[in-house]
């Protein structure tokens, strides 16, 4: 089971990274989403894996529970990552609508613009 989870994290990271290196904004966003899954699962797994032991206290019995702390951290992380994905999508959309271009790479900034900034 550990092998499955670890390899899933690895596959999600690898595919996420590959897509992040693409040149258009949409695949980059997909890549970031995959990386988000990878990171969330990774954080979650830091509480180690437990099957059938949800962290819901049973007042009558003395049980062992899955580690609740990483779960709480990952829960907010999932919601926040939605917010951040939405911001990135909006920026990508704005850039595309404004410049009719959805590539993520700028042309290298040359010295002339920098000098204008300074003046």
């Amino acid at each position: 089971m550990e092998l499955l989870v670890a390899s899933a994290i690895g596959v999600l990271t690898a595919t996420g990274l590959y897509l992040v290196f693409r040149m258009r904004s949409f695949p980059v966003i997909l890549g970031i989403s995959l990386l988000t899954y990878a990171v969330n699962v990774f954080l979650f797994a830091s509480g180690r894996l437990a099957v059938g032991a949800p962290p819901i206290l049973d007042k009558t019995a003395d049980l062992t529970y899955a580690d609740p702390l990483p779960q709480a951290l990952v829960l907010t992380a999932i919601v926040i990552s939605f917010g951040m994905t939405a911001v990135v999508v909006m920026i990508a959309l704005g850039a595309y609508l404004g410049g009719d271009d959805d590539t993520v790479n700028d042309a290298v900034q040359d010295d002339t613009t920098a000098k204008e900034d300074a003046a």
């Binding site: 550990e2 690895g10 690898a14 595919t15 797994a45 830091s46 180690r48 894996l49």
Partner: peptide
């Protein structure tokens, strides 16, 4: 991918 795989497998 291999790096994260190795790391998570290790600590799991």
């Amino acid at each position: 991918g291999l790096a994260t795989f190795a790391l998570s497998y290790h600590y799991l």
